[in-house]
Amino acid sequence: MQLFSIFAVYFIVWWLTLFAVLPFGLKTQAEANDVVPGSVESAPARFRGGRIVLITTLVSAVIYSAWYVLSVRLGYGLDSLPQFYPNYE
């Protein structure tokens, strides 16, 4: 597998994982009873960007490693999935 492809797939996995990780541990300004004037109540009370990036990187590394082992090392791919639609040949 080419180096560019490895980084491209990892970036896609990382980006999707980021949106899954963002709401974990989020405490809104309304929940903290500290709404800053001019902001919405659902805004984070304290944004922890470093923690989110770290968790996203770790989780996406696990997901990517599992994908890499299954697809590259063991040879599983889309053709290995069962087909639930009828074959009209």
Rank of each mutant, 00 (worst) to 15 (best):
M1A: 08
Q2W: 04
Q2R: 07
Q2H: 04
L3S: 04
L3D: 03
L3W: 09
S5E: 04
I6D: 03
F7I: 09
V9G: 04
Y10Q: 00
F11P: 00
I12D: 07
V13L: 07
V13H: 10
W14G: 02
W15L: 10
W15F: 14
W15A: 15
L16C: 15
L16P: 00
L16T: 05
L18P: 08
L18A: 12
F19I: 04
F19C: 05
V21K: 12
V21Y: 11
V21N: 03
V21W: 06
L22F: 09
L22E: 14
P23V: 04
P23N: 03
F24P: 00
G25V: 09
L26W: 09
K27R: 12
Q29L: 04
A30N: 02
A30L: 08
A30F: 00
A32K: 02
A32P: 03
N33T: 00
D34V: 06
D34G: 06
D34E: 01
V36W: 08
V36M: 11
V36E: 12
P37H: 15
G38V: 13
G38P: 04
G38S: 08
G38L: 07
V40S: 14
V40K: 07
E41Y: 04
A45D: 09
A45F: 13
A45Y: 14
A45E: 14
F47Q: 03
F47C: 01
G49K: 10
G50N: 12
G50K: 10
G50I: 15
R51S: 09
R51L: 11
I52F: 08
I52V: 14
V53I: 14
V53S: 12
L54W: 07
L54K: 08
T56R: 11
T56V: 15
T56S: 14
T56L: 13
T57D: 06
T57W: 10
T57N: 09
L58Q: 00
L58P: 00
V59C: 03
S60C: 11
A61R: 00
V62K: 05
V62S: 01
I63K: 05
I63C: 11
I63L: 15
I63G: 00
S65K: 06
A66G: 08
A66H: 04
W67L: 15
W67K: 08
W67I: 14
W67S: 15
W67Y: 10
Y68Q: 02
V69D: 04
V69W: 01
V69P: 01
V69E: 00
L70V: 02
S71Q: 03
V72Y: 02
R73M: 00
G75I: 12
G77H: 02
D79G: 11
D79C: 03
L81Y: 07
P82D: 02
Q83M: 04
Q83T: 08
F84S: 06
Y85M: 13
N87I: 13
N87Y: 07
E89F: 10
